[in-house]
Design a protein around this nucleic acid. Structure first.
Lengths: 235, 235
DNA sequence: GAATTTATTTGATATATATCAATGCACAAA
DNA sequence: TTTGTGCATTGATATATATCAAATAAATTC
């Protein structure tokens, strides 16, 4: 279950430099702090908010991973974004709109709840916040556009190979964390579990990738790049 | 071909109330004007910019329609957004990024070119611009998320029916402009021309829709709503 | 550790949509 | 009017991916 672990101490916040407040001076960080952002923990699979809820807060993710999903009445699901440390989410309230997606913890999370009213006030005083949000806007839209291209124009293998190569970050030993289940990868890429499983099994069999307990390693990147880029040249 | 038709007279601009400058006072509109926004016309099918170009401007669409597309090396295409009067586009430069999509005129267009430098300067002085851009950010992301849901989770008929019902605006006589070719509808919905054509023909045969010279009319909205919402209740 | 539950894999089959190919139609050019 | 050119339609067929079902494997609970 979720529970409060304290009021945010913005000045000493460990994800400050990743957040939209990265360029805020200590003076204004203090003011941000006065708005009483509340830090809460959530356990994996818990909802932070649901599509249709009325927003009182925006959120900054401090620890863990979150998926934003949209769902249809009959249960079909699309993951529209995966959030990592420092990401701002649930800002629909800025446009006086209800949440357009649901936010669900992928892993145990630590989330800072930012009261909308206070944030709006601070925004008007400090243009660097808007500047930071603008950067994120553009990045989010680029991500969304790339995803539309994937979903609308690419084949299953292309989407999956692209996901494996470009999602997350590898350790120096080449292994990277893969915190999504097959089902979730499917929900992200518009595929069924079975299709995801089949391609992964096939690539494992052929030595293109390796897998162990929540991690994968790409052994033959060239192969995956050729899948991604059927015509183009591959490095 | 495109050509310049003059420097923008922002105060008397016919799409001002639709633009991000809607709430700007006349004083600051004057200042905006000093940045010398240039109004240009483009003919249908012309590129306004290409994916990968370096931005010097952002744009406001004054007249006509524009499609933003992303394409793959082998020619596959995804339309990621369709713009109408008052829409801001090509703002990638705000994040010091190259254009992430190409912008192509769907019809003959009139477009205001806003020099980035000037716009940035004005933004810092007038928070209402950022406020307006924020609203658009949130709306654009909602649109993109809905489209991801469509492309990733819905069937061809659902996407197409949804498009017919919810895209564009009907005249009071029930007819609505349909300026997209079958091919373009396909590029928007992640389908082939043939698939689009087949469903439309079928619905025409069954009297669900009518079509004439660039316009369509929905005769049996209930039918289309049931296609869109297979399980749910339909008004 | 045994018992349950949940996630993954694999196979057989179905089906929606793509692909390929041909024809028809509308509008522009000559 | 004819001739062309692009777009839309229709049909036949192929195929990628979904669906259904069962067998393993892994994770949780007792």
């Amino acid at each position: 279950m979720s529970h409060i672990i304290g009021k945010g101490r913005c000045i000493s916040c460990q994800v400050r430099h990743l957040s939209i407040f990265a360029n805020l001076s200590t003076q204004y960080l203090g003011e941000l702090c006065d708005f009483q952002p509340t830090v809460m923990t959530y356990t994996a699979k818990e909802f932070i908010y649901r599509q249709g809820d009325s927003p009182n807060n925006a959120f900054t993710l401090r620890k863990g991973l979150i998926k934003l999903i949209k769902s249809l009445p009959d249960g079909r699901i699309q993951i529209v974004r995966i959030l990592k440390s420092g990401d701002l989410f649930g800002f629909d309230g800025f446009a006086h709109q209800d949440y357009n997606q649901s936010a669900i913890a992928l892993s145990d999370c630590e989330i800072c709840h930012l009261p909308l009213a206070g944030l709006q006030k601070l925004r008007l005083q400090r243009p660097e916040i808007d500047q930071a949000m603008m950067q994120r806007w553009i990045q989010s839209l680029h991500d969304a556009e790339n995803m539309m291209l994937d979903l609308g124009a690419k084949k299953a293998s292309e989407r999956l190979a692209n996901f494996l190569v470009n999602w997350g970050e590898s350790e120096q030993d080449g292994w990277k964390k893969m915190p999504l289940s097959r089902q979730e990868v499917g929900n992200l890429l518009g595929l069924t579990v079975e299709t995801v499983s089949r391609f992964l099994s096939d690539w494992k069999r052929r030595g293109v990738i390796q897998e162990r307990k929540g991690c994968i390693r790409i052994k033959d990147k060239k192969h995956l790049c050729e899948v991604i880029n059927p015509k183009g040249t591959c490095g």
